[in-house]
Structures are given as C-alpha cells and as structure tokens.
Write a protein that binds this DNA or RNA. Structure first.
Length: 291
DNA sequence: TTCTCAATAT
DNA sequence: AATATTGAGA
C-alpha cells in the first residue's frame, strides 16, 4: 500500500499541540485558594490588549460563575448542572438552560484553528457542526462557529472580488468589520477560487514549515495586521481560572482521528470587557498553538 | 434537523 | 466594532 493518503492528516495532527503543551501559556500563576476566592468576591482578570500589555481588572461578582467549563460528569444530557450557578446574582435564578453565555472572542489563534479545520474538511464538508467538532474547543458552540463562518465567507467573497483589477484597497461594501482577524490567518488558496469537489482530500498542502510561521503575513496586498500579541509574557502573566477541569464528555466525535486520539481542548477563560463604563462578559478561548 | 443568508439586536 | 440572535427558505 501507499505511504498513505492519510499522511496529511498525520502531519496535521503533529502540528496540533500535545496535552502537555496546552498548559504553559496561561496556567497558573495563581494558587488554588486564590482561585477559590473568585467565587466569593472579587474576580481579578486579565484583559489582554493587543499590544501584549495585560491589564488587570477587578470584576465585582454580581454575576454567578460562568456556566461553561462544567465537568460534565454524568451522561446526563443536561447542559449544565444548575447547582449553584444560578444563585449568585440578585433576584431570581434563571433556568440554567437559558443562561446566556459570554460572547466569544475570536483570537487570531482560535481563528487559525477554525481555518485549519475548514481547510482540512474541504469546503464541502465544512459546515458549522463539523467544524466545531474538528476544532474541539471546549465551550465552543455550533452557533459560534456558524456565525463566524458566515462572516468569514463574506470575507472570502470580498477577497475574490478584488483580485486583479485596479485594486483599490477599499471594498466599501459596508461590511468589512472583522477583516483584521481574518487577515491574521493565511487563507488557503482553494478557498478563494471555486467550490471544490469533495474529493480534494489530498490537498497540495503547504509544508508544515509554512504552516508554522503564521507571522504577520497579511494576505496579498492587504492592510498590515498588527503583531499577534504574545500571550505568555513572563512579566505580564496571565491568570487562568482552573475552570478547565471540564471533562469533555462531548458526544462521540464523529470525526475520526485516524491514529492518535488527540485530545486538545482549549482552555477557556472569562474576562470582563470594560467598555466605556459598560461592562460585558466575554469568553476567551485560549489557543493551544502558539505558533 | 441542520445549513445558509440577510437583517437586526446587543 | 465584533458577536449573537432570529427568521425564512432550502
């Protein structure tokens, strides 16, 4: 038999971080009891600004602890256990099922993961559910992906539009808000052209070397994207809630990982986004690949 | 059911 | 500005 057709897959897997590599960037500069303190009173969180400068903020615990990162223990299909999660706030504990998740923050790394998933699934199979499964990011929902995918597609179309002709950089179609993010990851070539057959399973894929350097390579003639913030700066360590105790009880992953059952679940962390006096909770799924 | 897309909401 | 939510049609 051949060397194999699944070779690309192996390489792809290799590219993924191993469970050990997951920890380093944001773990634990924080002691368990400090973590415990989160639940009682102040919740110190780091807001990572694009410059790599971390800002420490304090969040008054008006809100109950986030519903996510629950260690789904029993096969119970219930999303969350409503033990104490609803109780913390002021009047009225909402039905735990109706709890609102914090907004997801699509970091460049997370987006890259998204792009990788889409690339390897092939355009045809790249539907929200499948993408979500392949990404295997803890706390990521299908709707998160669907929403992102929708915007991403618009981005791709926009890109195709300005291929070749005169080339003003302004596609002022009104939409183009998240282009920075999208530009942060290289767009696999076949995304831009035409819908492919499902049989492009053997992508003429770029060598790993190319994959690993996802530096500020903006897409052809595109506005420069600022440096991706380095997360693990010694001086501005990130506090990480030990939330990630979550055991992926996730449904049987339909996506067969050929050889090694990689289990790379991203860590999730909640930060508060103080926006002009209006604070809203956001969820950041921290990247596993620092690349 | 899930997907996709446009519009709209937060 | 960036995501989420909704609603309609496939």
């Amino acid at each position: 038999m051949r060397e194999d057709e699944s070779n690309w897959f192996s390489k792809w897997e290799e590219q993924l971080p191993s469970p050990d590599e997951l920890m380093p960037l944001s773990q634990t500069l924080i002691t368990p009891h400090l973590a415990v303190a989160f639940d009682i009173t102040n919740n110190p969180v780091i807001n990572t600004s694009p410059g790599g400068v971390a800002t420490l903020q304090v969040q008054h615990s008006l809100q109950p602890p986030p519903p996510l990162s629950m260690p789904l223990q029993s096969p119970n299909s219930g999303e969350f256990d409503s033990s104490e999660l609803g109780g913390g706030g002021a009047a009225g504990d909402e039905p735990a099922r109706t709890l609102k998740r914090p907004r997801l923050v699509w970091t460049p790394q997370l987006h890259k993961r998204f792009v990788d998933a889409v690339a390897h699934l092939g355009i045809k199979n790249a539907v929200p559910k499948t993408i979500m499964q392949l990404m295997s990011v803890d706390g990521l929902t299908r709707e998160n992906v669907a929403s992102h995918l929708q915007k991403y597609r618009l981005y791709l179309k926009r890109m195709q539009g300005l291929s070749g002709s005169g080339g003003g950089s302004h596609a002022s179609s009104g939409d183009a808000a998240t282009d920075h993010l999208f530009a942060s990851s290289p767009v696999p070539a076949h995304f831009l052209h035409q819908g492919r057959s499902n049989s492009e399973h053997f992508l003429p894929f770029v060598p790993v070397s190319a994959l690993q350097q996802q530096q500020m390579v903006a897409v052809a003639g595109h506005p420069q994207y600022r440096h991706v913030p380095h997360f693990g700066s010694p001086s501005n360590a990130q506090f990480e809630h030990p939330f990630m105790a979550r055991q992926p009880h996730q449904q049987q992953q339909q996506v067969h990982r050929m050889g090694t059952p990689v289990q790379n679940t991203l860590q999730s962390s909640y930060i508060e986004d103080l926006e002009s006096g209006n604070a809203r909770k956001v969820l950041t799924l921290f990247p596993t690949g620092n690349d």
